[in-house]
């Protein structure tokens, strides 16, 4: 089933308190795991996977692009950073 993936991130210039909290926790891990010691920041965004019946044609993709800009993201505080089509909903990496 074709799946349109939309990725949204908080605007780069805005503070991302969620990412900052995660980065703080990684920083504390970094004290014991030297491989994490050079992590300098984390930002947390969102990934939407929209399953399509049949084919993801140009019209569908255009409609999802519109949806991404108007509903899935709020341009005051977020940016759509990626839209792509994949063959199926994501599964765990091997």
């Amino acid at each position: 089933m074709p799946t349109i993936v939309v990725e949204v991130m908080p605007k780069a210039e805005l503070l991302d308190p969620q990412g900052k909290a995660v980065a703080g926790a990684l920083g504390r891990l970094g004290q014991t795991q030297s491989a994490l010691a050079n992590v300098s920041g984390v930002r947390v965004g969102k990934r939407f996977e929209i399953s399509i019946e049949g084919v993801a044609d140009a019209a569908t993709l255009a409609a999802v692009r519109e949806l991404a800009d108007t509903v899935l993201s709020n341009s005051v505080i977020e940016d759509v950073v990626g839209i792509h089509v994949q063959d199926a909903p994501s599964s765990a990496v091997a």
Partner: peptide, 10 residues
């Protein structure tokens, strides 16, 4: 106008 995001101290 504008938008609201998470409080700065989380």
């Amino acid at each position: 106008d504008g938008g609201l995001i998470r409080n700065d101290k989380g």
